[in-house]
Design a protein around this nucleic acid. Structure first.
Lengths: 219, 219
DNA sequence: AATTCATAAATTGTATACAATAATGTTTAA
DNA sequence: TTAAACATTATTGTATACAATTTATGAATT
């Protein structure tokens, strides 16, 4: 449910970037988007600004915004930061996670298996995100959860930008999620931290990172 | 050097919030600020939006923005996240810090002593920030450095909101910075991480956190 | 043919007008 | 007197007009 025009535009643009409908590095020209979306420049500017803050675009004063073109270095660095915070969250979660949250995690894990068998990629990613966010919140640290959410979103762009065919060929993280769940149930901080670390390592390694040709168009 | 009107307003408002000229919870009314600052609502809206993203204000759709009123819990949580990232940065910096950066750190440390003796609080904070940012960058991870910078800014608001008389009565972190510098020079990851951890712990503890009366005005 | 410069076009930044929503105050009914 | 309904005001959201800046174009120069 969109609050207003700007919010609507924001979601539309974000989706277009994530799905690859707008190519990396493309300039986001306000007037063109305004005409296309049949609104004025005002909500377009707001949406672009928001995308900029969230790392989907870069902005240069008096020049405008472009869709990000993440470098391999930037991707590695972002994954590393995410890994640091999620490891800590997993450790803290062993102390704070509630029985309700644990049972919710269990349902997520079984849903995840189903979505993988059905090759329902969108749904698979959605559940994967839900698992990570649940653990982030179970840490009890709301500020950290917010940062993890932001980092999760950014790494999601990378995943899709650099795995454009989304083959779902990788060995999914189902076993790893199960290990994590076991560690949380056992309330074993070291094991939880380790599981999360390994999991994010393999998520990163599973990405088929390669610099795409300049004129590559995913759709 | 401000890029444009919005940027100017942003810095002005941020300073007013950090210095406590604008009280916690105060509504930021666009028209009023526009009249006061002698510009239109457009750059005001942009500046407010930016402050919102950076956590200096909260926003409610169709209702507008208010200056944050951080709770004790939120302050603790933010310090904790900062501590996690800065510990890691210090550890990584032992591998990547350059001789130039080390010598710069040394000059910062001596300047810091001078500013403390002169009771020049603004300058003292500026150098303290510079030290932390330098180490963040010396980690070699630019993404992490950006997050640390953001967290540094946020904890700075807390410092001033909750230590409004800015008496500089605390035992300054000069010794702790020296320890950190020594660990970096020795390229000892464990020692660097530990020094940073201790340092941020004492910075947090040094804050005289107390919920101020509702109608408190610092200036 | 390449470079420089001036001009024109395109694009972003700001101001202002109007629309939509929220907050406030006033009247009316029970 | 209180509460609901309405009208009024204030404030935010959007559209549009204009200003400032950047980019594109093309002629003049070497």
């Amino acid at each position: 449910m969109e609050k207003n025009s700007e919010d609507f535009i924001y979601h539309k643009l974000k989706n277009a970037i994530i799905k690859g409908y707008i190519k990396q590095g493309t300039k986001l020209v306000e007037t063109a988007l305004a005409k296309q979306m049949e609104v004025s420049r005002t909500p377009i500017r707001g949406a672009i600004r928001r995308l900029t803050y969230e790392g989907f675009a870069i902005y240069e004063a008096n020049k405008g915004a472009c869709v990000i073109k993440p470098t391999l270095e930037e991707i590695q660095e972002t994954f590393f930061v995410r890994q640091q915070l999620e490891k800590t969250a997993a450790r803290l979660a062993t102390e704070n996670i509630s029985p309700e949250q644990i049972s919710k995690l269990e349902t997520y894990c079984s849903e995840e298996i189903r979505t993988f068998e059905d090759r329902d990629l969108d749904e698979y990613y959605r559940i994967n995100d839900a698992i990570h966010l649940l653990i982030a919140h179970a840490s009890g640290n709301k500020v950290m959860a917010r940062y993890i959410e932001e980092l999760l979103n950014r790494t999601k762009i990378y995943l899709i930008l650099y795995d454009p065919f989304q083959t779902m060929r990788f060995n999914p993280s189902i076993d790893e999620h199960q290990n994590l769940l076991d560690a949380l149930k056992a309330r074993d901080p070291a094991a939880a931290e380790k599981s999360m670390d390994i999991h994010l390592e393999s998520a990163y390694k599973g990405m088929d990172i390669q610099v795409l040709p300049e004129d590559y168009i995913s759709l």
